[in-house]
Design a protein around this nucleic acid. Structure first.
Length: 446
RNA sequence: GCCCCGUUCGUCUAGUGGCCUAGGACGCCAGGUUCUCAACUUGGUAGCACGGGUUCGAAUCCCGUACGGGGUACCA
């Protein structure tokens, strides 16, 4: 039988990286086994459920490239089926009615204003084999009767989850470890329905620096935030796959299709993992560098279009296209792009204070150097090699090597010590007049 | 409290009884290359939580301890 798995988020907030990782591992399992990946929206919590978030959720999953084969199926549409199962439980004596004070109420008919609790059998041992954790055992004596139906006429998570998994023919439930404790209850529910148990695989949790479970409330971990920071979806899924799993050959940066080939759910770790933004950035920059020119231009567009830190009318797409070749390899995220080119589209460079202090700390030297540079730039050939040569010579006059000598000029022209290759940028994207103006402006500010 | 789960460099991981004086990646440090940065490159840093067993041999198996986490809702 072909595996059937599902990702079952509840639309109570933005998709966060932990959920995305669960979605990814379900997807990987389905794709690597030839199974079916189903999307199910668990929207039974009427209080917190927000329909508009569902659309957002689907968008994020699409962005990540985690396409689903069936669904989205909305749990809220299965209300009648859930009611039917609960009613049967009541009739068969598996469950009982109870009031607001948790007192048992006589009767076997679902009644408005009354909740339903599942009766926990006494003295039973419940074991199951988890694909990640191995054999896990619980005693029913440690568990209590639990609510499966709210007094407001809606099903509880465990019930809806068990019924839907059974009805959808889910063969493998792959999800976060925070749900491990709920398994014995679900198994009891499944037994009461007389259906087979799915196989479980509980993924290690993703934790914050305090080693606590990542939460949408206290941790800034929405997938959308990373998209907006300029991370690539392929880098995101690649990094997420590395949390709790490692490729046997040690090659970490590889595409999703390649990961599908070597992924095995049984290789997943048991221990919680910390989401390390530095490593994520490293992976992202690697994917960024590997982008074709055309692809890069397309992806970077949102960061240099509307909202970029320069007047829109100053933007010159041809200049940017030239610059793209020079800066693509330097970016860690797409949002780094503007600050590598902003000086071209601003009237005045946006001068970074630290950079200024560092390079102009000796105003005499800086002024003399910039003076020599300006003089030699007056009527030279406007070419990369020529400019580089002239700055080298200017540097020699104040006893500085090119590495040091270019710094004040770079800050005068671009406003920062870090940026694209200076001489090429000047010769290709700036006029002699512009450069001389900036040198002269900088000297006045010394 | 009770139940369940976990513990290899700072971080993510490889490791399924001998190939481990524990490998890789990120980070960090030092050097090379270089017009800055990045990239690239050379080297370095740092770990099997602890204590008992089992075994000729244990990071790997067993028991205990410590620490961490998850659950224990008419949330999911």
């Amino acid at each position: 039988m072909k595996p059937r798995v599902r990702f079952a988020p509840s639309p109570t907030g933005f998709l966060h990286v932990g959920s995305a990782r669960t979605a990814l591992f379900n997807w990987l399992y389905a794709r690597s086994t030839g199974g079916t990946y189903i999307l199910r929206v668990e929207d039974t919590d009427q209080e917190r459920n927000r329909p508009e978030l569902t659309q957002q959720l689907l968008k994020e999953l699409e962005w990540l490239g985690l396409d689903w084969d069936e669904g989205p199926i909305f749990q809220s549409e299965k209300l009648e089926r859930h009611r039917e199962v609960v009613q049967t439980f009541l009739e068969d004596g598996y469950a009982y009615l109870c009031d607001n004070e948790n007192r048992e109420v006589e009767g076997t008919v679902l009644t408005e204003g009354l909740a339903v609790r599942f009766r926990m059998p006494k003295g039973k041992t419940i074991s199951f084999t988890d694909l990640v954790r191995g054999e896990v055992t619980f005693n029913t004596g440690d568990l209590e009767d639990f609510v499966i139906w709210r007094s407001n006429g809606t099903p509880m998570f465990l019930l809806a989850n068990a019924v839907d998994d059974a009805d959808m023919g889910i063969t493998h439930a792959i999800r976060g470890e925070d749900l491990l404790s709920g398994v014995p209850k679900v198994l009891l529910l499944l037994d009461a329905m007389g259906v087979k148990h799915p196989t479980y695989a509980h993924l290690p949790l993703l934790v914050n620096e305090q080693r606590k479970k990542l939460s949408k409330r206290r941790d800034d971990v929405a997938v959308g935030d990373y998209r907006e920071k300029g991370f690539l979806p392929e880098a995101m899924v690649n990094y997420l796959a590395l949390l709790g799993w490692g490729p046997p050959d040690g090659v970490e940066i590889r595409s999703l299709p390649e990961i599908v080939k070597i992924f095995d759910i049984e290789d997943v770790n048991k221990a919680a993992a910390f989401f390390d933004i530095q490593k994520f950035e490293h992976i992202n920059s690697s994917y960024l560098r590997d982008l074709s020119k055309e692809d890069f231009m397309q992806r970077v567009e949102p960061w240099i279009g509307n909202g970029a830190p320069w007047p829109e009318e100053n933007f010159d797409s041809e200049k940017f296209s030239t610059m793209a070749d020079l800066i693509q390899e330097k970016l860690r995220t797409l949002s780094d792009a503007p600050r590598f080119v902003d000086f071209l589209f601003l009237e005045q460079p946006d001068v970074d204070e630290e950079s200024w202090k560092k390079t102009m700390k000796d105003p005499q030297v800086a002024d003399s150097l910039l003076g020599h540079v300006a003089d030699s730039f007056e009527d030279c050939e406007w070419e990369t090699d020529v400019l580089k040569d002239l700055v080298t010579k200017a540097g020699e006059k104040v006893d500085l090597k090119l590495g040091k000598a270019q710094a004040p000029l770079r800050v005068a022209v671009t406003g920062r010590t870090v940026g694209p290759p200076l001489f090429e940028t000047m010769s290709c994207c700036m006029t002699r007049e512009e450069v001389l103006k900036r040198i002269s402006d900088a000297r006045k500010s010394l």
